[in-house]
Design a binder for these strands. Structure first.
Lengths: 353, 353
DNA sequence: ACGCAGCTTGACAATGTTGTCAACGGCGGC
DNA sequence: GCCGCCGTTGACAACATTGTCAAGCTGCGT
């Protein structure tokens, strides 16, 4: 057990500083600094002496102090404000950001907002107080104007998933409207004329855009927009399941929808749950917006309009680092295409009357 | 468009410091510091003047400088080293850590290691160089002794998911062996005598423990351990799918396994893919270790031994904060129980010969 | 008038680091 | 013998902030 240390009795050894290393190596602090930062102009003997002292003392440079003093002031960390680190969309995006940042040896501070404006602001504030070099934000509040001060201070800012309001800045978005339009067109292609819309909170811009795409496609196909087939403000699996059940139960014969467009991940899953409970999963068509793991193992396999959260994260991070490298060009608005993935559930034809 | 600022032409205004605020408010820096930190002993007029200057200058305190000077030296940030931020286990754990940290107004630095020892060390180093107040680590390397220096320096450390080696420290783990044992017992309960084991990389301690549980249960049931029914080192969905196919195809009639225990998330999914491809999903029983989203929407619904990553994160974070609050007790090893969730796939009986 | 207590306030040092610059000793060129 | 140059080195100030402490003020009691 000698290799095990017991914290209760573990000797407390405060962190060594440059000063300690310098004292042990018998050189000035500046010389240690030079060795640590790999600057040249130090004789090999001194380098050795310093190296030895460093490892003997388990010296770890203090990056905060370093950043404070350095002219650039860079902390080599960026902040990432996302909807919910536990959901697959956010976490895939985060991971992609991490991969880009990692190449630049930059760390990631991350936080979830859960659709809470207060939290968005609190997180941004906490990040900037730590002087992150840049921010990636999936905005949730109705106004991002409060971020102007950060931009003016030179902290680059890239928005993802949703367009910021009250501030012109780089952003990377899915082409929500076009994706939703595609979905409805595909359903119409197999003959559906009564296509329901199940949507997220109507005030979320992405939900709005997807609804716009839905409406546009109906118009293009000359299909009527039946208010009874439109449900907004579904935000959880249970919400969606209940709404789906209501929609299909309440069908005055021949008037119920024969296909469903679910405008979001959790809504899609809720709809599937309901369809399975009603035994209708093979008779009502379904296309969901946003892919999800295992969609292709369900029966029927679930057709989706896939977003690409990794790509979104990658592109956003790369944009951010371009800005950090000095790019002062006009702010960009990058629209990522969606992919229509037909797996089965979207190709179910309407029942012949 | 007046509310839109264009970064290309946006005025650059460097961040205001305490000094700037003090100058504008006509007081000393110390007084500003007092106001910012809510200390009392400042007349209301001065407080007002300072507040005004702060908002006029968009002053943001510099927490790095603050931490540097403060006696505690706390940075109000913790580092979290996980397997892969994009996988559901890691991200649920991270989210739970975030929730606990959030209450204490502590931020999270996060990174993925991808089974790479180098990366584990690099991340820990990067975190400690930023003087995080504590670390939560899902260790991947074979020796965590290198962390002793950090512990001695007073940085609390909690391991999750896997036990550290070469270092005695707090850790929070799932009861892998018992969970795996349960799984095999449940399969034996419905009559299976040829139960295959599909395992992750054998050198991962959790995989080892799960295999131990599998072996133990076989022993307890008096079932033979058939090497042909044991496959190790599966780490991806594809690996697992191939292995499953091979296992079931290669069945000399009457010798193939009638049930499968899949020791990990991705392996379970791979096995399901293969079973579906072979049309055997309703005839070969399956229990997977670790729950996954939508397991209860598949057909058959997938039985699992569920871990509780959120709970793991929550408990680990709380332990960490206890240590930060000064608890110097002996290091704890917390075993979280698993839950057996029988949904259908695990209750399929063996085909009658 | 004086001393003293209590509150407010600011000067100064310190945190751990790096940028600036001058000093050092040795050397070749005048 | 002196100048200037070289590579190396360290003294010092600075970064943004907070802890310490003494000075300043008011009002009170004597």
């Amino acid at each position: 057990m000698t290799e095990h240390a017991d914290p209760a009795t573990m000797p407390y050894r405060p962190r060594a500083t440059l000063r300690d290393v310098a004292a042990m190596a018998g050189v000035s602090m500046k010389t240690v600094s030079r060795v640590v930062n790999g600057e040249n102009g130090v004789t090999p003997q001194k380098v050795d002496a310093v190296r030895q002292a460093i490892s003997r003392l388990d010296y770890r440079p203090n990056l905060s102090a370093s950043a404070l003093r350095r002219s650039s002031g860079r902390t080599a960390a960026i902040g990432t404000v996302l909807e919910d680190l536990a959901n697959p969309f956010s976490s895939a995006l985060l991971r992609a950001v991490e991969d880009v940042a990692n190449e630049k040896r930059v760390l990631i501070l991350a936080g979830s907002v859960d659709e809470d404006q207060q939290r968005e602001r609190a997180l941004v504030r906490a990040f900037t107080e730590r002087r992150v070099d840049g921010l990636i934000v999936a905005p949730v509040g109705e106004d991002q104007g409060y971020l102007r001060a950060e931009m003016e201070a030179g902290t680059p800012l890239v928005f993802v998933d949703r367009q910021p309001q009250g501030l012109l800045a780089d952003c990377v978005l899915s082409d929500n409207e076009s994706g939703a339009r595609q979905a409805v067109h595909r359903l119409a292609d197999v003959g559906h004329r009564r296509i329901a819309y199940l949507g997220d909170l109507a005030l979320i811009p992405t939900a709005e855009q997807r609804f716009a795409g839905y409406q546009r496609a109906l118009l293009e196909r000359g299909l009527p927009l039946d208010p009874a087939h439109v449900v907004h403000d579904l935000h959880t699996v249970d919400d969606a399941a209940r709404a789906t059940t209501a929609l299909l139960r309440g069908l005055g014969d021949g008037n119920g929808p024969t296909a469903i467009f679910a405008s979001q991940n959790l809504v899609t899953i809720g709809a599937i749950t309901a369809l399975q409970d009603l035994g209708l999963e093979d008779s009502v068509a379904l296309i969901g917006f946003d892919d999800f793991p295992l969609a292709d193992l369900l029966k029927p396999r679930v057709s989706v309009i896939a977003q690409n959260p990794s790509e979104m994260g990658r592109v956003a991070a790369e944009l951010l680092f371009q800005r950090l490298d000095g790019d002062r060009g006009r702010p960009q608005r990058i629209l990522l295409p969606t992919t229509t993935v037909l797996r089965g559930s979207g190709e179910i034809p309407p029942a012949v009357p």
